[in-house]
Design a protein around this nucleic acid. Structure first.
Lengths: 206, 206
DNA sequence: AATTTATTTAATAGAGCTATTAAGAATGGA
DNA sequence: TCCATTCTTAATAGCTCTATTAAATAAATT
């Protein structure tokens, strides 16, 4: 119902699309619905974005970039490894707090249609690659100095993403099965932020 | 292409439906496609299962039960808590190895349509509730005796599900972004099974 | 064999969806 | 003011999908 600021329908369409794609995924969102919620004719969606696919990629690449940039930002800070790791986990977690549906979007679209995200990969691949390379170097160095135990970068990343993402992914499931309400989930989330840091730091210890 | 054993089309439809729902989710699977792959007329899908919704629930409830039964089986064994916990994690992991798409199915459908799974919840709710109650009691007892640190059952469960499930959820993402192949993933999975046990046991330590 | 019942197909109604097109309204510059 | 460009709508072609129905075929029963 929330209307756009400057009656710029192009922007309004994008915003509605973003919300709906995040809520229900690509397949279950129609351009008809997007238009209706944006308060314009359905044809206009195609006028501005040509195809539903292109509109989706607009949203998706932005979100995918957001997801990976969480790892990027901390890389610039000059901190000892363990502190940097803590910050990565926290920044990643906080980003998910602000974008709780992001994990769902990524999972859903990468799983059902890896092909669709190939173009997105092009856009963001230099991002993760450079970051990963840097992280890998630092990780190796820490291991070499015996400050942390032998661990692969992919294992470390997977731990962070699984623990952080799992909380948000499981939210609807816990809601449906255990009847967990919003407030209860919020309390859980508050706990998990620190716990995830603790668990991962503990796990990389020698 | 694999044909059904006794040319029982009802069964064949169910099996194809299971495979396709797991592969692509509810929304992206059509009864037309199911029929084609089962080698029968599209109307027959509706003859046996009436609606796509009902067919889906048939598949879904079976899979959801499988997911939760992984926690159930171990409960019967008479083991010290830490050993039991290890077994729960391992059994859960092994079950996912045999049903790698299961997490995706659960996430996708609970997230996009919590309403649809309400009927499923009815069927399986006594299952998790009794198991959870028992686990909760044991957990509390361990904490009381100071053998493990203070931790909520939901936190423990979330850790297990996140770490175990994350590996399978992230598979397509790692495939698409880092170009991770099947063999490499298998090696990763082998590592993660033990690692997840180690991490969680370490995390519940005092 | 005759008849009832179960399975399977073909055809189609009815709906919704994407994408295009042509026409109308608004806007801004000359 | 007039014209060109941009924005917006209405209409619709062409799909595909779900679900139903009637007719055909196969199986089972008497």
């Amino acid at each position: 119902m929330e209307e756009n600021k400057n009656t710029n329908l192009e922007q309004a369409i994008l915003e509605v699309a973003e919300r709906l794609f995040l809520e229900k995924g690509f397949a279950m969102t129609s351009t008809t619905e997007i238009a209706k919620e944006a308060g314009c004719n359905q044809g206009l969606v195609h006028y501005y974005y040509r195809t539903k696919e292109k509109l989706f990629e607009e949203v998706f690449s932005k979100k995918a970039e957001l997801f990976f940039s969480a790892f990027m930002n901390v890389e610039n800070e000059e901190l000892p490894f363990r502190e940097k790791l803590r910050r990565v986990i926290e920044v990643h977690f906080d980003m998910l707090m602000k974008n709780p549906r992001l994990p769902f979007l990524l999972i859903n679209e990468f799983t059902t249609n890896p092909g669709r995200v190939l173009s997105v990969k092009e856009k963001i691949k230099n991002l993760p690659e450079s970051v990963l390379a840097k992280m890998e170097k630092e990780l190796k160095e820490e291991i070499r100095c015996g400050r942390i135990r032998e661990i692969e970068l992919v294992d470390l990343m997977l731990m962070i993403i699984s623990l952080n993402g799992g909380l948000f992914i499981a939210k609807p499931i816990m809601g449906a099965i255990m009847g967990m309400g919003e407030e209860e989930w919020e309390r859980l989330a508050k706990r998990r932020r620190d716990e995830n840091v603790r668990i991962i730091l503990q796990a990389v210890e020698g």
